[in-house]
Computed example of a mutant assay.
Amino acid sequence: MQNSIALDSTRLQRLQQAPLWEFALALYAKPGVEAACLTLQEEGELDVCELLFHCWLYSCGLEAVPRAVARQREQRRQWQSSVTAVLRGLRRDLKDSAASSDSVAALRETIKQAELMAERENLQRWQEWVLEAHADEQRVMNIVEMPQDSAKWLRNQLLFSKANTHSESSLNTTSALCEALQMLTCQLDPHQGAR
Rank of each mutant, 00 (worst) to 15 (best):
R67D: 11
L38P: 05
L159W: 07
G32N: 06
Q182W: 00
L52M: 10
I111M: 07
Q13T: 01
L181K: 02
Q192A: 13
M146R: 15
S82N: 09
C55K: 06
V69G: 04
M1L: 06
Q17P: 02
M183Q: 15
K152G: 13
P19W: 04
Q127W: 02
Y28V: 02
L87V: 12
A118T: 01
W126I: 11
A29S: 07
E50F: 08
E179S: 14
S150L: 04
P190H: 12
L62S: 08
S100E: 13
A36E: 06
K152L: 15
L12E: 02
S9Y: 07
A106Y: 10
Y28N: 03
S170L: 12
R195Y: 15
A114F: 12
W21R: 03
Q113W: 08
L94P: 13
L46Q: 00
Q13G: 04
G32A: 09
A18P: 01
A106N: 12
V86R: 07
A18K: 11
L184K: 09
I5C: 06
D8P: 05
D102I: 01
A151Q: 02
V83K: 03
L90R: 02
C60A: 04
D96R: 12
A194F: 15
C37R: 05
A24N: 08
G89D: 01
H191Q: 15
S169H: 06
S175V: 15
D149Q: 15
W56S: 08
A64D: 03
M141Y: 07
S150W: 02
L177I: 13
L46D: 01
K30N: 00
N122G: 13
K162E: 10
M1W: 05
E132V: 09
E42D: 14
L154D: 07
E63I: 05
R92P: 00
R195E: 15
Q187T: 04
